[in-house]
Design a protein around this nucleic acid. Structure first.
Length: 546
RNA sequence: GUCUACGUAGCUCAGUUGGAUAGAGCAUGCGCCUUCUAAGCGCACGGUCGGGGGUUCGAAUCCCUCCGUGGACGCCA
Protein backbone atom coordinates (compact mmCIF):
# COMPACT_ATOMS: atom_id res chain seq x y z
CA UNK A 1 0.00 0.00 0.00
CA UNK A 2 1.30 3.46 -0.81
CA UNK A 3 0.50 6.88 0.58
CA UNK A 4 -2.17 7.73 -1.94
CA UNK A 5 -4.06 4.51 -1.35
CA UNK A 6 -3.98 5.15 2.37
CA UNK A 7 -5.38 8.62 1.83
CA UNK A 8 -8.12 7.27 -0.40
CA UNK A 9 -9.07 4.53 2.04
CA UNK A 10 -9.41 7.00 4.84
CA UNK A 11 -11.41 9.39 2.71
CA UNK A 12 -13.79 6.62 1.68
CA UNK A 13 -14.12 5.43 5.28
CA UNK A 14 -15.02 8.94 6.41
CA UNK A 15 -17.53 9.37 3.62
CA UNK A 16 -19.07 6.04 4.55
CA UNK A 17 -19.51 7.09 8.14
CA UNK A 18 -20.97 10.42 7.14
CA UNK A 19 -23.40 8.99 4.61
CA UNK A 20 -24.58 5.88 6.43
CA UNK A 21 -23.75 6.60 10.07
CA UNK A 22 -21.90 3.31 10.20
CA UNK A 23 -18.25 2.59 10.80
CA UNK A 24 -16.23 0.65 8.25
CA UNK A 25 -12.67 -0.61 8.74
CA UNK A 26 -10.14 0.82 6.31
CA UNK A 27 -8.82 -2.72 5.88
CA UNK A 28 -12.13 -3.69 4.31
CA UNK A 29 -11.79 -1.04 1.65
CA UNK A 30 -10.03 -2.15 -1.50
CA UNK A 31 -8.35 0.46 -3.65
CA UNK A 32 -6.98 -0.75 -6.97
CA UNK A 33 -5.61 0.60 -10.19
CA UNK A 34 -8.10 -0.16 -12.96
CA UNK A 35 -6.81 -2.08 -15.94
CA UNK A 36 -8.46 0.40 -18.23
CA UNK A 37 -6.89 3.85 -17.92
CA UNK A 38 -10.14 5.54 -18.89
CA UNK A 39 -11.53 4.35 -15.55
CA UNK A 40 -9.36 6.83 -13.73
CA UNK A 41 -6.31 6.53 -11.50
CA UNK A 42 -7.84 4.41 -8.77
CA UNK A 43 -11.05 2.49 -8.27
CA UNK A 44 -13.02 1.33 -5.28
CA UNK A 45 -15.68 -1.39 -5.17
CA UNK A 46 -16.99 -0.71 -1.68
CA UNK A 47 -20.46 0.26 -2.88
CA UNK A 48 -21.03 -3.19 -4.37
CA UNK A 49 -19.50 -4.91 -1.36
CA UNK A 50 -21.84 -3.24 1.04
CA UNK A 51 -24.96 -3.44 -1.11
CA UNK A 52 -26.28 -6.38 0.86
CA UNK A 53 -25.67 -4.88 4.29
CA UNK A 54 -27.21 -1.55 3.36
CA UNK A 55 -30.09 -3.06 1.35
CA UNK A 56 -29.54 -0.58 -1.44
CA UNK A 57 -28.57 -0.52 -5.08
CA UNK A 58 -24.76 -0.25 -5.38
CA UNK A 59 -24.99 2.74 -7.70
CA UNK A 60 -27.15 4.60 -5.23
CA UNK A 61 -24.69 3.84 -2.44
CA UNK A 62 -21.82 5.05 -4.60
CA UNK A 63 -23.69 8.25 -5.35
CA UNK A 64 -24.16 8.96 -1.64
CA UNK A 65 -20.52 8.20 -0.95
CA UNK A 66 -19.35 10.53 -3.69
CA UNK A 67 -21.48 13.32 -2.27
CA UNK A 68 -20.04 12.78 1.20
CA UNK A 69 -16.48 12.53 -0.07
CA UNK A 70 -14.10 15.23 1.10
CA UNK A 71 -10.54 14.79 -0.10
CA UNK A 72 -8.39 17.52 -1.66
CA UNK A 73 -6.20 15.01 -3.53
CA UNK A 74 -9.14 13.77 -5.60
CA UNK A 75 -9.80 15.82 -8.71
CA UNK A 76 -13.06 14.06 -9.43
CA UNK A 77 -14.91 10.82 -8.96
CA UNK A 78 -17.15 8.96 -11.39
CA UNK A 79 -19.58 6.18 -10.79
CA UNK A 80 -19.29 3.48 -13.40
CA UNK A 81 -20.50 0.01 -14.29
CA UNK A 82 -22.30 -1.88 -11.53
CA UNK A 83 -21.15 0.62 -8.87
CA UNK A 84 -17.44 1.26 -9.11
CA UNK A 85 -16.17 4.60 -7.88
CA UNK A 86 -13.44 5.74 -10.22
CA UNK A 87 -11.11 8.36 -8.83
CA UNK A 88 -9.05 10.75 -10.83
CA UNK A 89 -6.37 12.32 -8.69
CA UNK A 90 -4.92 15.78 -8.83
CA UNK A 91 -1.91 15.59 -11.11
CA UNK A 92 0.30 17.36 -8.58
CA UNK A 93 -0.53 14.73 -6.01
CA UNK A 94 0.54 11.99 -8.41
CA UNK A 95 3.72 13.81 -9.33
CA UNK A 96 4.81 14.13 -5.71
CA UNK A 97 6.18 10.61 -5.87
CA UNK A 98 9.25 11.84 -7.72
CA UNK A 99 10.45 13.85 -4.75
CA UNK A 100 9.56 11.03 -2.39
CA UNK A 101 11.77 8.63 -4.33
CA UNK A 102 14.65 11.07 -4.77
CA UNK A 103 14.67 11.73 -1.04
CA UNK A 104 14.46 8.06 -0.05
CA UNK A 105 17.06 6.78 -2.51
CA UNK A 106 18.13 3.22 -1.67
CA UNK A 107 15.44 3.12 0.98
CA UNK A 108 12.57 3.65 -1.46
CA UNK A 109 10.30 0.63 -1.24
CA UNK A 110 11.18 -0.17 2.34
CA UNK A 111 8.23 -0.34 4.71
CA UNK A 112 7.60 -1.36 8.28
CA UNK A 113 4.75 -3.80 7.74
CA UNK A 114 6.82 -6.54 9.35
CA UNK A 115 6.84 -4.61 12.62
CA UNK A 116 10.20 -6.13 13.67
CA UNK A 117 8.70 -9.58 13.95
CA UNK A 118 11.49 -12.13 14.39
CA UNK A 119 11.47 -14.55 11.48
CA UNK A 120 13.66 -17.54 10.84
CA UNK A 121 13.90 -18.58 7.20
CA UNK A 122 15.45 -21.97 6.64
CA UNK A 123 16.25 -22.97 3.09
CA UNK A 124 18.52 -25.08 0.89
CA UNK A 125 19.74 -27.25 3.83
CA UNK A 126 21.07 -29.72 1.28
CA UNK A 127 23.03 -32.65 2.67
CA UNK A 128 26.79 -32.13 2.46
CA UNK A 129 27.11 -35.13 0.20
CA UNK A 130 27.10 -33.66 -3.26
CA UNK A 131 26.75 -30.62 -5.44
CA UNK A 132 23.73 -28.33 -5.40
CA UNK A 133 21.39 -29.18 -8.23
CA UNK A 134 18.50 -27.38 -9.89
CA UNK A 135 16.01 -27.94 -7.10
CA UNK A 136 18.42 -26.53 -4.54
CA UNK A 137 19.10 -23.60 -6.84
CA UNK A 138 15.42 -22.75 -6.96
CA UNK A 139 15.23 -22.94 -3.18
CA UNK A 140 18.37 -20.85 -2.76
CA UNK A 141 17.21 -18.08 -5.09
CA UNK A 142 13.72 -18.09 -3.61
CA UNK A 143 14.73 -18.24 0.04
CA UNK A 144 17.33 -15.53 -0.35
CA UNK A 145 14.90 -13.26 -2.18
CA UNK A 146 12.16 -13.84 0.37
CA UNK A 147 14.64 -12.92 3.10
CA UNK A 148 15.65 -9.73 1.32
CA UNK A 149 12.04 -8.73 0.76
CA UNK A 150 10.99 -9.45 4.33
CA UNK A 151 13.97 -7.53 5.61
CA UNK A 152 12.98 -4.57 3.45
CA UNK A 153 9.50 -4.81 4.96
CA UNK A 154 10.73 -4.47 8.48
CA UNK A 155 10.93 -8.10 9.57
CA UNK A 156 13.89 -9.17 11.66
CA UNK A 157 15.15 -11.99 9.46
CA UNK A 158 17.53 -14.82 10.30
CA UNK A 159 18.66 -16.93 7.34
CA UNK A 160 19.48 -20.44 8.34
CA UNK A 161 20.96 -23.60 6.85
CA UNK A 162 20.52 -26.92 8.61
CA UNK A 163 23.41 -29.27 8.02
CA UNK A 164 22.58 -32.96 8.19
CA UNK A 165 26.03 -34.04 9.28
CA UNK A 166 25.07 -37.03 11.38
CA UNK A 167 22.86 -39.49 9.52
CA UNK A 168 23.35 -42.54 7.34
CA UNK A 169 24.18 -40.39 4.37
CA UNK A 170 27.36 -39.22 6.05
CA UNK A 171 28.41 -42.81 6.58
CA UNK A 172 27.87 -43.42 2.88
CA UNK A 173 29.79 -40.27 2.04
CA UNK A 174 32.76 -41.44 4.08
CA UNK A 175 32.78 -44.82 2.32
CA UNK A 176 32.39 -43.21 -1.10
CA UNK A 177 35.20 -40.79 -0.43
CA UNK A 178 37.45 -43.53 0.88
CA UNK A 179 36.85 -45.58 -2.27
CA UNK A 180 37.59 -42.61 -4.53
CA UNK A 181 40.75 -41.90 -2.57
CA UNK A 182 42.01 -45.45 -3.00
CA UNK A 183 41.11 -45.33 -6.69
CA UNK A 184 43.44 -42.36 -6.99
CA UNK A 185 46.24 -44.76 -6.20
CA UNK A 186 45.07 -47.35 -8.70
CA UNK A 187 43.52 -49.53 -6.05
CA UNK A 188 40.33 -51.29 -7.14
CA UNK A 189 37.66 -50.28 -4.68
CA UNK A 190 33.91 -50.31 -5.21
CA UNK A 191 31.70 -47.50 -4.02
CA UNK A 192 28.83 -48.62 -1.80
CA UNK A 193 25.58 -49.60 -3.51
CA UNK A 194 23.90 -46.28 -2.69
CA UNK A 195 27.13 -44.31 -2.78
CA UNK A 196 27.77 -40.80 -4.05
CA UNK A 197 29.05 -40.91 -7.59
CA UNK A 198 29.30 -37.17 -8.20
CA UNK A 199 32.37 -35.37 -9.50
CA UNK A 200 32.60 -33.47 -6.24
CA UNK A 201 33.58 -36.57 -4.27
CA UNK A 202 36.30 -37.35 -6.81
CA UNK A 203 37.60 -33.81 -6.52
CA UNK A 204 37.67 -33.99 -2.77
CA UNK A 205 39.55 -37.30 -2.95
CA UNK A 206 42.08 -35.61 -5.22
CA UNK A 207 42.45 -32.71 -2.81
CA UNK A 208 43.09 -35.09 0.06
CA UNK A 209 45.66 -36.94 -2.00
CA UNK A 210 47.29 -33.60 -2.76
CA UNK A 211 47.56 -32.69 0.89
CA UNK A 212 48.15 -36.00 2.61
CA UNK A 213 49.67 -38.16 -0.13
CA UNK A 214 49.21 -41.90 0.43
CA UNK A 215 49.11 -41.56 4.23
CA UNK A 216 45.66 -43.14 4.40
CA UNK A 217 46.13 -45.95 1.92
CA UNK A 218 47.52 -48.37 4.45
CA UNK A 219 46.14 -46.71 7.53
CA UNK A 220 44.06 -48.68 9.98
CA UNK A 221 40.55 -48.83 8.56
CA UNK A 222 38.79 -47.38 11.60
CA UNK A 223 41.15 -44.44 11.77
CA UNK A 224 40.90 -43.90 8.02
CA UNK A 225 37.11 -44.02 8.16
CA UNK A 226 36.96 -41.38 10.87
CA UNK A 227 39.35 -39.24 8.87
CA UNK A 228 37.36 -39.43 5.64
CA UNK A 229 34.12 -38.86 7.45
CA UNK A 230 35.36 -35.69 9.07
CA UNK A 231 37.18 -34.44 5.96
CA UNK A 232 34.23 -35.29 3.75
CA UNK A 233 31.81 -33.14 5.72
CA UNK A 234 34.27 -30.30 6.02
CA UNK A 235 35.28 -30.16 2.38
CA UNK A 236 31.75 -30.68 1.10
CA UNK A 237 30.57 -27.81 3.29
CA UNK A 238 33.40 -25.56 2.14
CA UNK A 239 32.35 -26.24 -1.44
CA UNK A 240 28.68 -25.59 -0.69
CA UNK A 241 29.56 -22.27 0.89
CA UNK A 242 31.67 -21.27 -2.10
CA UNK A 243 28.94 -22.17 -4.57
CA UNK A 244 26.28 -20.31 -2.59
CA UNK A 245 28.60 -17.35 -2.24
CA UNK A 246 28.95 -17.26 -6.00
CA UNK A 247 25.14 -17.31 -6.19
CA UNK A 248 25.01 -14.33 -3.76
CA UNK A 249 23.31 -16.42 -1.12
CA UNK A 250 24.55 -16.06 2.45
CA UNK A 251 23.37 -17.50 5.72
CA UNK A 252 23.43 -16.02 9.21
CA UNK A 253 23.37 -19.37 10.96
CA UNK A 254 24.61 -22.83 10.00
CA UNK A 255 23.04 -25.36 12.36
CA UNK A 256 24.64 -28.74 12.79
CA UNK A 257 22.67 -31.90 13.41
CA UNK A 258 25.73 -33.50 14.97
CA UNK A 259 25.90 -30.81 17.62
CA UNK A 260 22.31 -31.57 18.60
CA UNK A 261 23.31 -35.15 19.29
CA UNK A 262 26.42 -34.10 21.19
CA UNK A 263 24.62 -31.60 23.37
CA UNK A 264 22.00 -34.16 24.37
CA UNK A 265 19.13 -32.25 22.79
CA UNK A 266 18.14 -35.20 20.65
CA UNK A 267 17.99 -37.46 23.67
CA UNK A 268 16.00 -34.81 25.52
CA UNK A 269 13.26 -34.83 22.89
CA UNK A 270 12.80 -38.55 23.31
CA UNK A 271 12.62 -38.20 27.07
CA UNK A 272 10.12 -35.41 26.96
CA UNK A 273 7.82 -37.17 24.50
CA UNK A 274 8.05 -40.26 26.69
CA UNK A 275 7.35 -38.30 29.89
CA UNK A 276 4.32 -36.67 28.30
CA UNK A 277 3.00 -40.09 27.40
CA UNK A 278 3.11 -39.57 23.62
CA UNK A 279 5.19 -42.67 22.92
CA UNK A 280 4.76 -46.44 23.07
CA UNK A 281 6.81 -49.54 22.32
CA UNK A 282 5.86 -51.94 19.58
CA UNK A 283 7.77 -54.55 17.57
CA UNK A 284 10.93 -53.60 19.39
CA UNK A 285 10.70 -49.97 18.26
CA UNK A 286 9.66 -46.78 20.02
CA UNK A 287 6.74 -44.99 18.38
CA UNK A 288 5.43 -41.43 18.51
CA UNK A 289 1.64 -41.22 18.76
CA UNK A 290 1.53 -38.53 16.05
CA UNK A 291 -1.93 -39.59 14.90
CA UNK A 292 -3.21 -38.04 18.13
CA UNK A 293 -2.03 -34.70 16.74
CA UNK A 294 -3.46 -34.81 13.24
CA UNK A 295 -0.94 -37.01 11.43
CA UNK A 296 -2.41 -39.91 9.44
CA UNK A 297 -0.34 -42.53 11.24
CA UNK A 298 2.11 -42.96 14.07
CA UNK A 299 5.84 -42.64 13.44
CA UNK A 300 8.85 -44.54 14.63
CA UNK A 301 11.29 -42.58 16.76
CA UNK A 302 13.77 -45.29 17.74
CA UNK A 303 14.25 -48.22 15.42
CA UNK A 304 14.49 -51.77 16.70
CA UNK A 305 18.26 -51.64 16.17
CA UNK A 306 18.43 -48.85 18.72
CA UNK A 307 19.22 -46.00 16.32
CA UNK A 308 17.01 -42.94 15.88
CA UNK A 309 14.99 -42.05 12.83
CA UNK A 310 15.64 -38.67 11.20
CA UNK A 311 12.50 -37.34 12.85
CA UNK A 312 14.04 -37.11 16.33
CA UNK A 313 16.93 -34.74 15.57
CA UNK A 314 14.60 -32.77 13.32
CA UNK A 315 12.23 -32.19 16.21
CA UNK A 316 15.14 -31.22 18.44
CA UNK A 317 16.32 -28.80 15.77
CA UNK A 318 12.96 -27.08 15.49
CA UNK A 319 12.68 -26.84 19.24
CA UNK A 320 15.96 -24.90 19.26
CA UNK A 321 14.39 -22.46 16.83
CA UNK A 322 11.53 -21.90 19.25
CA UNK A 323 14.02 -21.45 22.07
CA UNK A 324 15.74 -18.73 20.11
CA UNK A 325 12.56 -16.69 20.29
CA UNK A 326 11.33 -16.44 16.72
CA UNK A 327 7.77 -15.32 16.09
CA UNK A 328 7.61 -17.14 12.81
CA UNK A 329 9.50 -20.11 11.38
CA UNK A 330 9.55 -20.39 7.61
CA UNK A 331 10.84 -23.58 5.99
CA UNK A 332 11.40 -24.13 2.30
CA UNK A 333 11.04 -27.80 1.48
CA UNK A 334 11.11 -29.77 -1.74
CA UNK A 335 7.82 -31.20 -2.98
CA UNK A 336 9.04 -34.69 -2.11
CA UNK A 337 8.93 -33.67 1.56
CA UNK A 338 5.44 -32.25 1.67
CA UNK A 339 4.03 -35.35 3.38
CA UNK A 340 6.42 -34.61 6.19
CA UNK A 341 4.66 -31.43 7.29
CA UNK A 342 1.86 -33.02 9.37
CA UNK A 343 4.26 -35.13 11.45
CA UNK A 344 6.56 -32.17 12.13
CA UNK A 345 3.62 -30.04 13.24
CA UNK A 346 2.27 -32.95 15.28
CA UNK A 347 5.63 -33.27 17.02
CA UNK A 348 5.84 -29.56 17.78
CA UNK A 349 2.38 -29.60 19.25
CA UNK A 350 3.17 -32.67 21.32
CA UNK A 351 6.25 -30.85 22.62
CA UNK A 352 4.02 -28.00 23.76
CA UNK A 353 4.79 -25.56 20.97
CA UNK A 354 2.36 -23.76 18.69
CA UNK A 355 2.53 -25.54 15.33
CA UNK A 356 0.99 -22.56 13.56
CA UNK A 357 4.22 -20.68 14.08
CA UNK A 358 5.82 -23.00 11.57
CA UNK A 359 4.95 -22.31 7.95
CA UNK A 360 6.33 -24.61 5.29
CA UNK A 361 6.50 -23.44 1.69
CA UNK A 362 6.79 -26.25 -0.82
CA UNK A 363 9.08 -25.97 -3.82
CA UNK A 364 7.72 -27.79 -6.81
CA UNK A 365 10.07 -29.89 -8.87
CA UNK A 366 12.35 -28.45 -11.50
CA UNK A 367 12.72 -30.40 -14.72
CA UNK A 368 15.72 -29.92 -16.90
CA UNK A 369 14.79 -29.62 -20.55
CA UNK A 370 17.24 -29.62 -23.41
CA UNK A 371 16.32 -29.52 -27.11
CA UNK A 372 12.71 -29.97 -26.12
CA UNK A 373 13.38 -33.17 -24.18
CA UNK A 374 13.60 -33.81 -20.50
CA UNK A 375 17.09 -34.62 -19.27
CA UNK A 376 16.93 -37.42 -16.76
CA UNK A 377 19.42 -36.98 -14.01
CA UNK A 378 21.04 -39.99 -12.48
CA UNK A 379 22.57 -40.14 -9.07
CA UNK A 380 24.46 -43.23 -10.14
CA UNK A 381 26.36 -41.58 -12.95
CA UNK A 382 26.50 -38.20 -11.27
CA UNK A 383 25.44 -36.40 -14.45
CA UNK A 384 23.22 -33.86 -12.71
CA UNK A 385 23.70 -30.26 -13.77
CA UNK A 386 25.04 -28.29 -10.81
CA UNK A 387 24.31 -24.79 -9.63
CA UNK A 388 27.91 -23.81 -10.29
CA UNK A 389 27.82 -25.06 -13.88
CA UNK A 390 24.56 -23.25 -14.44
CA UNK A 391 25.96 -19.97 -13.14
CA UNK A 392 29.08 -20.29 -15.22
CA UNK A 393 27.06 -21.00 -18.33
CA UNK A 394 24.31 -18.41 -18.19
CA UNK A 395 25.34 -16.01 -15.43
CA UNK A 396 24.15 -15.56 -11.87
CA UNK A 397 21.63 -12.83 -12.73
CA UNK A 398 19.82 -14.94 -15.28
CA UNK A 399 19.71 -18.04 -13.08
CA UNK A 400 18.42 -16.13 -10.08
CA UNK A 401 15.84 -14.31 -12.11
CA UNK A 402 14.70 -17.48 -13.83
CA UNK A 403 14.04 -19.27 -10.57
CA UNK A 404 12.31 -16.41 -8.84
CA UNK A 405 10.01 -15.20 -11.60
CA UNK A 406 7.65 -18.16 -11.36
CA UNK A 407 5.35 -18.97 -8.46
CA UNK A 408 6.84 -21.60 -6.15
CA UNK A 409 3.98 -24.04 -6.64
CA UNK A 410 4.37 -24.37 -10.40
CA UNK A 411 6.34 -27.21 -11.91
CA UNK A 412 9.24 -25.43 -13.52
CA UNK A 413 10.95 -26.43 -16.73
CA UNK A 414 14.47 -25.11 -16.93
CA UNK A 415 15.15 -24.87 -20.63
CA UNK A 416 18.88 -25.31 -21.06
CA UNK A 417 18.78 -24.58 -24.77
CA UNK A 418 17.17 -21.24 -24.09
CA UNK A 419 19.44 -20.49 -21.15
CA UNK A 420 22.57 -21.30 -23.14
CA UNK A 421 21.61 -18.85 -25.87
CA UNK A 422 22.34 -16.03 -23.46
CA UNK A 423 20.21 -13.86 -25.68
CA UNK A 424 17.49 -11.34 -25.12
CA UNK A 425 14.97 -14.16 -24.81
CA UNK A 426 15.83 -13.96 -21.16
CA UNK A 427 13.60 -11.48 -19.33
CA UNK A 428 16.37 -10.32 -17.03
CA UNK A 429 18.05 -8.55 -19.94
CA UNK A 430 14.91 -6.56 -20.60
CA UNK A 431 14.97 -5.03 -17.13
CA UNK A 432 18.72 -4.57 -17.04
CA UNK A 433 18.59 -2.91 -20.43
CA UNK A 434 16.08 -0.39 -19.13
CA UNK A 435 18.43 0.44 -16.27
CA UNK A 436 21.45 0.73 -18.55
CA UNK A 437 19.51 2.98 -20.90
CA UNK A 438 18.64 5.31 -18.04
CA UNK A 439 22.24 5.37 -16.86
CA UNK A 440 23.34 6.23 -20.36
CA UNK A 441 21.14 9.33 -20.39
CA UNK A 442 22.05 10.35 -16.87
CA UNK A 443 25.73 10.22 -17.78
CA UNK A 444 25.11 13.16 -20.10
CA UNK A 445 24.23 15.51 -17.28
CA UNK A 446 26.16 16.48 -14.19
CA UNK A 447 23.40 16.52 -11.66
CA UNK A 448 19.75 15.72 -11.32
CA UNK A 449 17.81 17.67 -8.75
CA UNK A 450 14.34 17.78 -7.39
CA UNK A 451 12.23 20.36 -9.25
CA UNK A 452 9.94 22.98 -7.69
CA UNK A 453 7.13 21.62 -9.84
CA UNK A 454 6.51 18.78 -12.27
CA UNK A 455 3.61 20.38 -14.05
CA UNK A 456 5.15 19.85 -17.48
CA UNK A 457 4.92 16.08 -17.10
CA UNK A 458 1.63 15.60 -18.86
CA UNK A 459 2.20 12.89 -21.42
CA UNK A 460 0.14 9.73 -20.81
CA UNK A 461 3.36 7.70 -20.75
CA UNK A 462 4.83 9.95 -18.08
CA UNK A 463 1.76 9.69 -15.89
CA UNK A 464 1.64 5.93 -16.33
CA UNK A 465 5.26 5.63 -15.22
CA UNK A 466 4.75 7.96 -12.26
CA UNK A 467 1.75 6.04 -11.09
CA UNK A 468 3.55 2.76 -11.27
CA UNK A 469 6.60 4.00 -9.39
CA UNK A 470 4.16 5.01 -6.69
CA UNK A 471 3.01 1.39 -6.41
CA UNK A 472 6.39 0.00 -5.44
CA UNK A 473 6.22 0.09 -1.62
CA UNK A 474 2.86 -1.67 -1.75
CA UNK A 475 4.27 -4.37 -4.00
CA UNK A 476 7.17 -4.99 -1.62
CA UNK A 477 4.81 -5.21 1.31
CA UNK A 478 2.58 -7.63 -0.55
CA UNK A 479 5.50 -9.78 -1.67
CA UNK A 480 6.74 -9.97 1.92
CA UNK A 481 3.36 -10.88 3.34
CA UNK A 482 2.78 -13.60 0.76
CA UNK A 483 6.47 -14.56 0.60
CA UNK A 484 6.28 -14.26 -3.16
CA UNK A 485 9.33 -12.74 -4.81
CA UNK A 486 7.74 -13.43 -8.18
CA UNK A 487 5.50 -10.43 -7.46
CA UNK A 488 8.62 -8.29 -7.50
CA UNK A 489 9.63 -9.84 -10.83
CA UNK A 490 6.27 -9.01 -12.31
CA UNK A 491 6.67 -5.49 -11.06
CA UNK A 492 10.13 -5.18 -12.57
CA UNK A 493 8.92 -6.34 -15.97
CA UNK A 494 6.04 -3.90 -16.00
CA UNK A 495 8.10 -0.99 -14.71
CA UNK A 496 10.72 -1.65 -17.38
CA UNK A 497 7.97 -1.84 -20.01
CA UNK A 498 6.49 1.48 -18.92
CA UNK A 499 9.92 3.04 -19.01
CA UNK A 500 10.74 1.73 -22.50
CA UNK A 501 7.39 2.95 -23.68
CA UNK A 502 8.00 6.39 -22.18
CA UNK A 503 11.48 6.47 -23.68
CA UNK A 504 10.09 5.94 -27.14
CA UNK A 505 7.42 8.56 -26.75
CA UNK A 506 9.37 11.33 -25.02
CA UNK A 507 12.79 12.74 -25.55
CA UNK A 508 14.24 13.27 -22.09
CA UNK A 509 16.88 15.86 -22.81
CA UNK A 510 15.31 18.56 -24.91
CA UNK A 511 17.78 21.42 -25.56
CA UNK A 512 14.93 23.76 -26.42
CA UNK A 513 13.13 23.26 -23.13
CA UNK A 514 15.34 23.28 -20.07
CA UNK A 515 12.50 23.13 -17.58
CA UNK A 516 10.88 20.09 -19.16
CA UNK A 517 14.27 18.38 -19.40
CA UNK A 518 14.91 18.92 -15.70
CA UNK A 519 11.52 17.47 -14.78
CA UNK A 520 11.98 14.47 -17.04
CA UNK A 521 15.47 13.86 -15.68
CA UNK A 522 14.05 13.79 -12.18
CA UNK A 523 11.43 11.27 -13.30
CA UNK A 524 14.20 9.26 -14.93
CA UNK A 525 16.24 9.20 -11.78
CA UNK A 526 13.24 8.12 -9.75
CA UNK A 527 12.70 5.29 -12.22
CA UNK A 528 16.32 4.25 -11.96
CA UNK A 529 16.21 4.18 -8.16
CA UNK A 530 13.02 2.14 -8.14
CA UNK A 531 14.31 -0.32 -10.71
CA UNK A 532 17.59 -0.78 -8.92
CA UNK A 533 15.93 -1.28 -5.55
CA UNK A 534 13.52 -3.81 -7.04
CA UNK A 535 16.34 -5.78 -8.66
CA UNK A 536 18.27 -5.73 -5.39
CA UNK A 537 15.34 -7.44 -3.68
CA UNK A 538 15.86 -10.49 -5.87
CA UNK A 539 19.64 -10.27 -5.83
CA UNK A 540 20.07 -9.20 -9.44
CA UNK A 541 22.59 -6.55 -10.54
CA UNK A 542 21.37 -3.28 -11.97
CA UNK A 543 23.67 -3.05 -14.98
CA UNK A 544 25.01 0.42 -15.82
CA UNK A 545 26.18 -0.40 -19.32
CA UNK A 546 25.22 -3.09 -21.80
C1' G B 1 -5.96 -46.93 -3.93
C1' U B 2 -5.35 -42.69 -0.13
C1' C B 3 -3.33 -37.82 0.66
C1' U B 4 -1.44 -33.26 -1.59
C1' A B 5 -0.45 -29.58 -5.35
C1' C B 6 -1.23 -28.02 -10.21
C1' G B 7 -4.24 -27.55 -15.31
C1' U B 8 -5.22 -20.07 -18.41
C1' A B 9 -3.29 -18.23 -26.23
C1' G B 10 0.86 -22.77 -30.57
C1' C B 11 5.02 -22.55 -26.27
C1' U B 12 6.55 -20.51 -21.16
C1' C B 13 3.60 -18.17 -17.64
C1' A B 14 1.02 -13.49 -14.87
C1' G B 15 -3.68 -12.83 -12.96
C1' U B 16 -4.66 -13.35 -3.85
C1' U B 17 -9.08 -11.26 0.83
C1' G B 18 -14.67 -12.91 -6.07
C1' G B 19 -15.03 -7.14 -9.93
C1' A B 20 -15.51 -3.65 -15.46
C1' U B 21 -13.93 -6.09 -22.49
C1' A B 22 -9.06 -12.51 -19.07
C1' G B 23 -3.13 -10.16 -19.68
C1' A B 24 2.50 -10.42 -20.78
C1' G B 25 6.87 -12.67 -23.15
C1' C B 26 8.34 -16.08 -27.01
C1' A B 27 6.71 -17.66 -31.89
C1' U B 28 4.05 -15.59 -36.60
C1' G B 29 2.87 -11.01 -39.81
C1' C B 30 3.39 -5.62 -40.70
C1' G B 31 5.51 -0.85 -39.36
C1' C B 32 9.51 2.52 -36.50
C1' C B 33 16.86 4.20 -35.96
C1' U B 34 20.04 11.77 -40.07
C1' U B 35 17.16 12.28 -32.69
C1' C B 36 19.43 10.56 -25.41
C1' U B 37 21.49 2.44 -26.01
C1' A B 38 16.67 -1.09 -31.82
C1' A B 39 18.96 -6.22 -25.94
C1' G B 40 13.82 -1.13 -27.63
C1' C B 41 8.77 0.76 -29.24
C1' G B 42 3.89 0.48 -31.94
C1' C B 43 0.05 -2.46 -34.49
C1' A B 44 -2.06 -7.23 -35.88
C1' C B 45 -2.95 -12.45 -35.11
C1' G B 46 -3.99 -15.80 -31.25
C1' G B 47 -8.80 -18.15 -25.65
C1' U B 48 -14.93 -23.70 -24.56
C1' C B 49 -9.50 -20.02 -18.25
C1' G B 50 -9.13 -28.98 -18.47
C1' G B 51 -14.94 -30.86 -18.70
C1' G B 52 -19.59 -30.52 -16.06
C1' G B 53 -22.58 -28.75 -12.03
C1' G B 54 -23.34 -25.29 -7.83
C1' U B 55 -22.96 -20.60 -4.62
C1' U B 56 -24.50 -14.64 -6.29
C1' C B 57 -25.61 -8.62 -8.58
C1' G B 58 -20.89 -10.75 -10.58
C1' A B 59 -16.48 -16.75 -10.80
C1' A B 60 -10.05 -17.97 -14.04
C1' U B 61 -10.61 -16.99 -8.56
C1' C B 62 -15.00 -20.08 -3.68
C1' C B 63 -17.68 -25.32 -3.21
C1' C B 64 -18.79 -30.37 -5.41
C1' U B 65 -17.66 -33.94 -9.16
C1' C B 66 -15.05 -36.06 -13.23
C1' C B 67 -10.56 -36.10 -16.47
C1' G B 68 -5.22 -35.17 -16.91
C1' U B 69 -0.13 -34.25 -14.79
C1' G B 70 3.61 -34.06 -10.83
C1' G B 71 4.77 -35.46 -5.84
C1' A B 72 4.13 -38.24 -1.18
C1' C B 73 2.47 -42.59 1.15
C1' G B 74 9.70 -46.63 4.76
C1' C B 75 11.96 -49.02 11.54
C1' C B 76 15.44 -43.92 4.37
C1' A B 77 16.85 -38.64 4.88
Amino acid sequence: MNELETILKEAVAQAYEKAFHAVIATDDIVIEIPKDQSHGDYACNIAMKSAKALHQNPRVIAQQLVEALDCPQIAHCEIAGPGFMNFTMNKDTMRNVIDVVLAAGDDYGKNDSGAHRKVNVEYVSANPTGDLHLGHARGAAWGDSVSRIMQASGYDVCREYYVNDAGNQIHTLALSLMARYLQEFGIEKELPEDGYYGKDVINIAKAIKEQYGDAYVKQDEMIAYAFFREQGIQLELDKLRRDLDLFRVHFDVWSSELSLHESGKVEAVLEKLHDLGHTYEQDGALWFRSSAFGDDKDRVLRKSDGSYTYLVPDIAYHITKFERGFDLLVNLWGADHHGYIPRMKAALQAMGKNPDQLEVDIIQMVRLVDNGEEVKMSKRTGNAVTLRELCEEVGVDAVRYFFVQRALDTHLDFDLTLARKQSNDNPVYYAQYAHARICSILRQVTDVKSCPSYELLEDAKEIQLLKYINEFPGVVQDAAKLRSPNKVCNYIQKLAAYFHSFYNACKVIDPTNEELSAQRLALLKATKITLKNALALIGVEATEKM
